[in-house]
Computed example of a mutant assay.
Amino acid sequence: MSKTAVVFPGQGAQYVGMGRDLYERFPEARRVFEEASAAAGFDVARLCFEGPEERLQLTEFQQPALLAVGVACWRVLAARGLEPAAAAGLSLGEYGALVVAGVLELGDAARVVRLRGRFMQEAVPPGEGAMAAILGLEARAVEDLCRQVVAEGAGVVEPANYNCPGQIVVAGHRAAVEAAIVRARTAGARKAVLLPVSAPFHCRLMEPAAQRLAEVLAQVPLRPARIPVVANVTAEPVTDPERIRELLVQQVHRPVRWEQSVRRMQAEGITRLVEMGPGKTLTGFARRIDRSLEAVPAGTVEEILALVARPEGGLLA
């Protein structure tokens, strides 16, 4: 029998217009946007639907916006019978997974991720940090070349995201990231390019942001998870609220182990991932990790209705 996990994407999945069809079609989705707006302190629906794109790109606003769209997708499917066995999310997406698991209230999550985005943006002065995607090298090769660059004194650079086989993102000081790109190309990488991001996420340069986030999270009530949430930092399922609090702080400055998280869910018997929110990034990663794992997007009305309409034995069985 199939076991389903719901997964939530991170930053980069956003686009102007995301979630509008859900808002117009489903009252459950409208309530999510209203709740997120009240908690985050700005009109989340308007930003998602109308932009401007420049504001949606700002980490402080992008994080609550993506959270709202993902949770809206979840609430619509939950109202129609979806009962997942586990949840996970890439970086920011982990907060959506924690809402699904009952650890966080949506309002608390929206407030926290807006501050999280602000802290991450302010941790490194503009222009000093960077991230790069390296495609076509094994993880160990990327780790080695990062160590070589650091040993040469170019600055900090280290793996930030283990997305799927042959796709690693690195982050750190801009000069060090650029040096890592050169080394990766020399080592035979199929592609090594800077990413259009505003800060070097998930590396040690984010430690100041993690410290500030810890102070915020200390005041936020967390409950035991109803279903296991596979944590980015450890790629292990977790249900204890205090351990979750610790891992959310660590997540800011440690790498996201997404490939390992997916494989861990498979080891727990998960056979299907449903991606909640805009885009199909995690669906694509899943297919590169293991093609036997079913992965389906659920970010639009059309996609959600297609899932609900599956015959007996399908998604909602």
Rank of each mutant, 00 (worst) to 15 (best):
A187L: 12
E242V: 12
T239V: 13
A235K: 00
M206E: 10
A218V: 07
I227F: 06
A231G: 08
E236Y: 04
V230G: 10
A210M: 07
L205Q: 00
L213S: 03
T234A: 12
K191V: 07
P241Y: 04
A209T: 09
R223G: 04
A180K: 01
T239Y: 06
A218I: 07
P224Y: 06
R183W: 07
L205G: 03
E215T: 10
E236H: 06
E215S: 15
E242L: 12
P196Q: 08
F201H: 01
A231W: 05
T186D: 14
L194W: 05
L247V: 09
A184G: 08
V182L: 15
V249G: 01
T239N: 09
I244L: 13
R183N: 06
V216L: 02
I227P: 03
V230Y: 12
Q211S: 13
L247E: 10
R226N: 14
P237H: 07
E215D: 15
V229C: 10
N232Y: 05
R190H: 10
G188Q: 06
T234E: 15
R245I: 10
A231K: 04
V182E: 15
S198C: 11
L205W: 02
T234H: 03
A184Q: 01
L217P: 01
I181E: 10
Q211L: 14
R226D: 15
A214I: 01
A209Y: 01
V193E: 15
P208L: 09
G188S: 09
R245A: 12
V220A: 05
P237I: 05
A235Y: 10
E242Y: 12
K191N: 14
E236I: 06
A189D: 02
R226L: 15
